[in-house]
Design a binder for these strands. Structure first.
Lengths: 162, 162
DNA sequence: AACGGTATTGACAACGGTTTTCATTTCAAC
DNA sequence: GTTGAAATGAAAACCGTTGTCAATACCGTT
């Protein structure tokens, strides 16, 4: 009756990493678009590579500007989108509506332990969880199953300053 | 460095259910505000009680209007907010940004198996999951831990019509 | 049954994050 | 160097949600 749109945020990347230039040999355009290498694209990728915290587009934008590498907000959004489509970055939608991104080391399926204060995140794998969710879904007759699981808390570093 | 705001959506309700009128005996205002019983408030609660699917404020608004029980969109949002604060409804933020609500039977902590197509949801409890998340968090030195876990798929009813 | 104070309502404006638009700039193949 | 296509970015549009505030509806009291 009602209708719940998209939802879920899984994905397992194939392409290993870093600023691909794709063949570009001739006709076919690159996978998730973005073929050329540009100062802005490199800056966004570098900024993401420099932190292990989940970061929002606006934060990256401000950070890059502060670092003397100004990149248009629109452009930041565009690159994040492409990277996300390619599975090169993980995406999290926070409860306050902000979308945050993170370049994860693990290419395979995993979840996160995220600090509410600083965004610092740890990648965690839980085979038992995967098994459990599939089991539950199957038992209820659901197909085409995916799941989201994130753990939020205060990291050790943030415990000091209240 | 960056900063991840709120996040997480747990909570265990105390008040069993339905349109409370709270003492109102004299001074103190009701918990999550909303003390009087009104046509609009009843309509929103009834609409939520009538479905087991996660529904958005806008959907409820349209539905109520269609049912000949027009309620202002702002008012719908307000009641949903209050119900959520009271823990009488569960809240889910979908990846497309919409927030959906559902009156759950279980008052205690649980997760959901949600149909991407129709919003139909099943409440599922996973003690092992709870244990696992706490374990992981503790191992990494995280405190004040909470987690979100939802399973998305296509329910059996939605498999028929592609 | 009428009153009166206050909680509630709802049309409309404002918000905040994200996406579109489109003229301009940059890239890289020739 | 020339050139066509991709990338950029300022500004406007979007969209779900929240704030504003005058008008209205509840409900205990008279």
């Amino acid at each position: 009756m009602e209708g719940v749109p998209t939802a879920n945020r899984d994905r397992a990347s194939d392409e290993p990493d870093g600023r691909v230039t794709v063949s570009a040999g001739r006709g076919l355009p690159g996978r998730g678009t973005t073929t050329r290498s540009t100062r802005q694209g490199d800056a966004v990728s570098a900024a993401l590579a420099a932190t292990n915290a989940f970061t929002s587009a606006q934060e990256l934008h401000a950070q890059l500007r502060a670092d003397g590498q100004p990149v248009g907000l629109t452009t930041v959004y565009r690159h994040l989108q492409v990277l996300a489509d390619r599975g090169e970055v993980d995406v999290l939608r926070l409860d306050d509506g902000e979308t945050v991104y993170r370049r994860c080391a693990t290419g395979s399926h995993h979840h996160h332990l995220v600090c509410r204060e600083c965004g610092h995140a740890v990648e965690v794998a839980g085979p038992e969880i995967e098994r459990w969710t599939e089991q539950v879904a199957a038992a209820e007759g659901f197909t085409d199953v995916a799941h989201t699981l994130e753990i939020y808390g205060r990291c050790a570093d943030c415990v000091s300053c209240p």
